[in-house]
Measured scan of single mutants.
Amino acid sequence: MAAGGDHGSPDSYRSPLASRYASPEMCFVFSDRYKFRTWRQLWLWLAEAEQTLGLPITDEQIQEMKSNLENIDFKMAAEEEKRLRHDVMAHVHTFGHCCPKAAGIIHLGATSCYVGDNTDLIILRNALDLLLPKLARVISRLADFAKERASLPTLGFTHFQPAQLTTVGKRCCLWIQDLCMDLQNLKRVRDDLRFRGVKGTTGTQASFLQLFEGDDHKVEQLDKMVTEKAGFKRAFIITGQTYTRKVDIEVLSVLASLGASVHKICTDIRLLANLKEMEEPFEKQQIGSSAMPYKRNPMRSERCCSLARHLMTLVMDPLQTASVQWFERTLDDSANRRICLAEAFLTADTILNTLQNISEGLVVYPKVIERRIRQELPFMATENIIMAMVKAGGSRQDCHEKIRVLSQQAASVVKQEGGDNDLIERIQVDAYFSPIHSQLDHLLDPSSFTGRASQQVQRFLEEEVYPLLKPYESVMKVKAELCL
């Protein structure tokens, strides 16, 4: 049975990233139509530049190519590739079939990587351009969430054990800070992308030097003109047959890092959902379990974690691919890159769409948070109580021993009897502590235990987050809708 299948058929496997999760716009960027249309555009740009620099290419040939950029006979191309065992030459023939007058000058002087690699770089750039505003929107939604809850005390956790208090907004800023680093890295790697350009079979530009009869300047002009037509500021000066596969490492490393950030955020949300302090959106008709109707599973956060793990592992592909590119190139890269580049971007696209949807509907339960604080705060307040007693004339050592005994009794009630923490009640009825009984409410005010959390939130948002989001103001209103 021949390899390949009808990918629109229910009898043929289709990647869930495309069929179930990723956005239509990201799927289109990695589609065959987008790819092969870009090949034709690159052939047109090459012909236009070659004509401008004096090669015998007519206006009629150029116009014929322009008129057929979208006229792609995919069936013919597939048949040609089956016959020739070469995808680029299959599309040269297919393009030439609908451009008979231009057929002889299509791909003039070029090698397969002229269309293959340059198209990949265009796709990487455009895919990054799709991700950047999506990530900015996630940051914006979380920034709104953090600002609104900047002063809401909550129990902090280290080692997932109760620690000092923080605020809900401050905790959210930990998430935002990681995503801001990801946004900066995505922008950097996007701006650092260079075009492969017009380089020939081993990167020496020998074929173009021959076409222009040894004119170095025209060869350099050709490279520059096509690079500018493709919208790049610069091209690699040095290439082998391909652009260095280190570029793929750079791009997928940034995406993998984004995956790590999203995994951490969504894990926190899942843990908070278990504590009943916070939940992701839950639709009115949504079913959490087929057997347990009360369940409210954090399905979206779980999906993000599941896909983020996949995204983090994909960076190993370009690392290994770059390491086995012998001399000017081997074909070890080809099949692998067809999979890992598309999957990385479709996965990143999915987790950003999902995280935006989550961040637009996060639900906080202040009463649950308050109750958990009441359970733990008495123990945390013991040092403040000791200091207040010393100020009232008591002995630190005597007070410490009193607190120690009462704390152990209260802990026994919590752990052995399943009761509430009654340390404060014990202190309130103990005559030894009568000098500070009137101060206990103040000493137990949760806001006095959150330090500068709310001020940190305000400063972080104003100095770091809002300036970073400013270039994306025009796209901030787009909502994230999930079908599944």
Rank of each mutant, 00 (worst) to 15 (best):
residue 105 I to T: 08
residue 452 R to P: 03
residue 432 Y to A: 13
residue 290 S to V: 02
residue 101 K to D: 15
residue 462 E to P: 06
residue 436 I to L: 07
residue 282 F to I: 13
residue 402 K to C: 02
residue 30 F to D: 03
residue 293 P to E: 00
residue 135 L to G: 07
residue 160 F to S: 07
residue 272 L to E: 08
residue 365 Y to V: 07
residue 169 G to C: 02
residue 170 K to Q: 05
residue 275 L to A: 12
residue 50 E to Y: 09
residue 386 I to F: 03
residue 186 L to S: 11
residue 55 L to C: 10
residue 67 S to G: 09
residue 282 F to K: 07
residue 305 C to P: 02
residue 358 I to W: 04
residue 349 D to K: 03
residue 350 T to G: 08
residue 197 G to T: 01
residue 345 F to G: 07
residue 9 S to I: 15
residue 280 E to N: 00
residue 279 E to K: 03
residue 329 R to Q: 00
residue 308 A to E: 01
residue 155 L to F: 06
residue 336 N to F: 02
residue 132 L to V: 13
residue 473 E to V: 14
residue 215 D to E: 13
residue 417 E to I: 06
residue 133 P to V: 14
residue 362 L to T: 09
residue 164 Q to T: 05
residue 67 S to I: 15
residue 178 D to F: 01
residue 456 Q to G: 05
residue 259 G to Q: 00
residue 320 Q to A: 09
residue 314 L to W: 07
residue 393 G to Q: 08
residue 115 V to M: 08
residue 230 A to W: 03
residue 480 A to G: 15
residue 329 R to W: 00
residue 210 Q to N: 13
residue 386 I to E: 04
residue 166 T to A: 06
residue 4 G to N: 15
residue 191 D to R: 07
residue 64 E to H: 15
residue 316 M to Q: 14
residue 224 K to G: 11
residue 74 F to P: 09
residue 444 L to D: 01
residue 117 D to N: 00
residue 275 L to V: 10
residue 118 N to V: 00
residue 103 A to M: 11
residue 79 E to N: 10
residue 408 Q to A: 14
residue 199 K to H: 00
residue 242 T to G: 05
residue 129 D to S: 09
residue 425 E to F: 11
residue 94 T to Y: 15
residue 149 R to A: 08
residue 196 R to C: 13
residue 35 K to Y: 05
residue 227 T to K: 10
residue 387 M to G: 14
residue 291 A to H: 02
residue 417 E to L: 10
residue 190 R to S: 09
residue 296 R to G: 02
residue 220 E to K: 07
residue 98 C to K: 10
residue 232 F to I: 05
residue 475 V to G: 14
residue 178 D to V: 05
residue 179 L to A: 12
residue 265 I to G: 05
residue 347 T to F: 13
residue 259 G to F: 00
residue 350 T to R: 05
residue 163 A to M: 00
residue 51 Q to M: 09
residue 123 I to E: 07
residue 347 T to I: 11
residue 166 T to S: 12
residue 284 K to M: 12
residue 475 V to L: 14
residue 369 I to S: 12
residue 469 L to M: 11
residue 183 L to I: 11
residue 271 L to E: 01
residue 280 E to D: 07
residue 45 W to G: 14
residue 15 S to P: 14
residue 75 K to I: 10
residue 446 P to Q: 03
residue 310 H to I: 10
residue 454 S to A: 12
residue 273 A to S: 12
residue 340 C to Y: 15
residue 106 I to R: 00
residue 328 E to L: 02
residue 341 L to Y: 13
residue 3 A to R: 11
residue 437 H to P: 01
residue 461 L to E: 01
residue 252 L to C: 12
residue 443 L to H: 04
residue 5 G to H: 07
residue 325 Q to I: 13
residue 389 M to R: 09
residue 171 R to H: 05
residue 62 I to C: 09
residue 314 L to G: 08
residue 103 A to G: 11
residue 102 A to F: 04
residue 355 L to R: 01
residue 406 L to Y: 12
residue 436 I to W: 04
residue 193 L to N: 03
residue 270 R to W: 01
residue 471 P to Y: 15
residue 317 D to V: 05
residue 276 K to Q: 05
residue 157 F to T: 03
residue 438 S to V: 09
residue 234 R to L: 10
residue 453 A to N: 15
residue 186 L to D: 01
residue 70 E to G: 12
residue 121 L to P: 00
residue 142 L to S: 06
residue 403 I to K: 03
residue 180 C to R: 05
residue 333 D to Q: 03
residue 454 S to L: 09
residue 147 K to G: 09
residue 439 Q to R: 07
residue 481 E to W: 11
residue 324 V to K: 04
residue 101 K to T: 10
residue 4 G to T: 15
residue 186 L to N: 06
residue 94 T to H: 15
residue 265 I to C: 13
residue 68 N to G: 10
residue 307 L to K: 09
residue 330 T to C: 15
residue 331 L to P: 00
residue 446 P to H: 12
residue 333 D to W: 00
residue 15 S to L: 15
residue 476 M to Q: 15
residue 55 L to S: 04
residue 413 V to R: 12
residue 430 D to V: 05
residue 132 L to N: 15
residue 171 R to M: 00
residue 235 A to V: 13
residue 235 A to N: 13
residue 396 R to Q: 01
residue 73 D to F: 10
residue 62 I to L: 13
residue 351 I to F: 05
residue 205 Q to N: 13
residue 365 Y to D: 02
residue 34 Y to G: 10
residue 84 L to T: 05
residue 477 K to Q: 14
residue 382 T to Q: 07
residue 275 L to G: 06
residue 39 W to P: 00
residue 269 I to C: 05
residue 276 K to A: 05
residue 376 E to W: 05
residue 457 V to M: 04
residue 481 E to F: 07
residue 306 S to M: 00
residue 300 R to S: 14
residue 331 L to W: 02
residue 450 T to Q: 05
residue 448 S to E: 14
residue 266 C to P: 05
residue 41 Q to R: 14
residue 134 K to L: 12
residue 102 A to N: 10
residue 380 M to N: 08
residue 289 S to C: 00
residue 18 A to R: 09
residue 152 L to C: 10
residue 322 A to R: 03
residue 392 A to L: 07
residue 340 C to Q: 01
residue 421 N to Y: 06
residue 429 V to E: 14
residue 32 D to A: 14
residue 167 T to V: 02
residue 251 V to E: 03
residue 58 T to H: 11
residue 449 F to C: 02
residue 269 I to S: 03
residue 175 W to H: 08
residue 101 K to V: 11
residue 357 N to P: 01
residue 264 K to V: 03
residue 136 A to D: 05
residue 421 N to S: 10
residue 208 F to Q: 05
residue 422 D to I: 09
residue 377 L to P: 00
residue 23 S to Q: 07
residue 289 S to F: 01
residue 213 E to L: 15
residue 284 K to T: 13
residue 303 R to E: 01
residue 295 K to P: 01
residue 410 A to Y: 04
residue 402 K to M: 11
residue 12 S to I: 15
residue 94 T to W: 06
residue 267 T to E: 03
residue 120 D to L: 07
residue 290 S to R: 01
residue 249 I to Y: 07
residue 415 K to D: 04
residue 428 Q to F: 11
residue 319 L to K: 00
residue 453 A to V: 06
residue 465 V to A: 09
